[in-house]
C-alpha cells in the first residue's frame, strides 16, 4: 500500500480513509484525532474526538463542555483499533497533554508529530521517538537560523533586568496555553519566589496545570484595586502579548515588555513588536532538533507541514531522504 493511500491531505485536514478520521482538522468532521490543545489544532464542533485526557480537558476549558459530540480519552502507548487501522498516542513534549499520533495499517506506519520539541520542559511529558515509515514533521522554526538557547539562560536575562530596573513592571508576553505556564515554572526553577501576576485570560489554564500537579507558586490576578500604580513596580506580569498594546497595560508603572517566543531569536522581529527584552523560549523544535529527529528516526519518507517547509525539504534532499511539503493551511502556530 502506498503511504498516501493510508493518509493524505484533504480540504478539512489530514485524512485517513481506512479509519475514517482526520488528524487536527481545520473544520468540523465526524471523527477527529487531536494532537494537542492549541486552538489551530483543536477546534470545536467535531462529532467524536479522540485525544489525551489533558487535551480533552483543555478543549473543554477553552470551548466549553459541549465542544464535541463524544470525547474519548486515550492513554499514551495504548493502541486503539479503528476499522482495522491501529492508532496510538505518544508524548510530543510540546505542551501539557500534547501527543504524536502513530497510524498503522497494512504494514505502513505513519507518525504525525503535531507540534513537538525535544528540549526538557517540566510542564509536560518528554518527547518520545516513534519509529515510522513516514514521519510528518512540523517546521515552525525550520530554518538554519533558529537555535533555541538554554531557557534558563533566558530567564536569567529577565532576572538581571528585574535587578537593573526594579521600578519597572516587567510584562512578559506568553501564549496562554503552555508557554505561560512554562515561563512561570522556569522562573520558579530559577529561584524566583515572589508572586507572579497573571492576566485574566490565563487563570483557568494555570489552575488546570496546577491541578495536574505542576506547581506554579504564588499566582495573583493582575487586577487593580482602586488605582495605586506603584503596586506593580518591579513585578512580573504574565499575559498574552496582544494585551500589552491594550489599555489594560496602562495600570503598570513604566512597563518593560518582554516576549517569550522562539521568534525572538531574530532581532528585527523583537524590534518591530516593540519588545524591549526578547526571551528566546520556544515550545517547538529548533533547526538542530528538527534535523536530529529526522536522522534519529530514519524514516523512508518525510512530509513537512506548517512552517518553513521549503528549507527542511531542501535539507532532506541533501541528506538523501525523500521529502515533500504538505502545504496544509490553517495552522498559525498559536503556541509560540
Amino acid at each position: 500500500m502506498k503511504p498516501d493511500q493510508l493518509l493524505y491531505p484533504a480540504p478539512a485536514g489530514l485524512y485517513c480513509p481506512s479509519g475514517d478520521f482526520y488528524v487536527d482538522p481545520m473544520r468540523p468532521v465526524a471523527r477527529a484525532l487531536i494532537t494537542h490543545g492549541h486552538s489551530d489544532h483543536a477546534r470545536a464542533g467535531h462529532g467524536a474526538v479522540l485525544a489525551t485526557r489533558e487535551t480533552l480537558d483543555i478543549m473543554a476549558i477553552r470551548h466549553g463542555p459541549d465542544f464535541c459530540g463524544t470525547a474519548q480519552p486515550v492513554e499514551f502507548g495504548e493502541t486503539i483499533d479503528l476499522s482495522g487501522t491501529r492508532v496510538s498516542f505518544h508524548p510530543a513534549g510540546h505542551v501539557l497533554g500534547s501527543a504524536q499520533i502513530a497510524i498503522a495499517a497494512d504494514g505502513t506506519r505513519f507518525c504525525v508529530s503535531g507540534d513537538y520539541k525535544r528540549s526538557p520542559d517540566p510542564t509536560c511529558a518528554p518527547y518520545e521517538p516513534v519509529a515510522c515509515d513516514v514521519f510528518i514533521t512540523e517546521a515552525t522554526f525550520g530554518l538554519p537560523v533558529f537555535h533555541h538557547p538554554d531557557p534558563k539562560g533566558e530567564i536569567g536575562k529577565l532576572l538581571t533586568s528585574l535587578k537593573q530596573f526594579p521600578e519597572r513592571s516587567h510584562l512578559i508576553g506568553a501564549y496562554s496555553l503552555g508557554k505561560a505556564q512554562r515561563v512561570i515554572r522556569l522562573l520558579r526553577d530559577c529561584g524566583y519566589d515572589r508572586p507572579v501576576y497573571i492576566h485574566g485570560s490565563l487563570s483557568k489554564l494555570c489552575d488546570y496545570y496546577v491541578s495536574r500537579g505542576i506547581d506554579l507558586g504564588d499566582l495573583r490576578p493582575a487586577t487593580l484595586e482602586k488605582g495605586d500604580r506603584t503596586d506593580f513596580a518591579g513585578a512580573v506580569v504574565v499575559g498574552p502579548p496582544s494585551a500589552f498594546g491594550e489599555r489594560w497595560a496602562r495600570r503598570f508603572p513604566e512597563p518593560l515588555v518582554a516576549f517569550a517566543s522562539g521568534w525572538m531569536m531574530v532581532r528585527q522581529r523583537a524590534k518591530q513588536g516593540g519588545v524591549e527584552l526578547p526571551l528566546v523560549i520556544s515550545d517547538h523544535c529548533d533547526w538542530p532538533e528538527l534535523t536530529e529527529t529526522i536522522r534519529d528516526l530514519a524514516p523512508a519518507e518525510v512530509w513537512v507541514t506548517h512552517g518553513r517547509e521549503e528549507a527542511l525539504v531542501r535539507w532532506c534532499e541533501l541528506a538523501g531522504i525523500p521529502a515533500r511539503p504538505l502545504h496544509l493551511v490553517g495552522y498559525e502556530d498559536e503556541g509560540d
Partner: peptide, 15 residues
C-alpha cells in the same frame, strides 16, 4: 553550508 539554505535564511532575517 548549502547555498540554498543560506539564501532562505538570509531572505528571512534580512541582515
Amino acid at each position: 553550508m548549502d547555498e540554498v539554505l543560506f539564501r532562505y535564511s538570509y531572505d528571512y532575517v534580512g541582515d
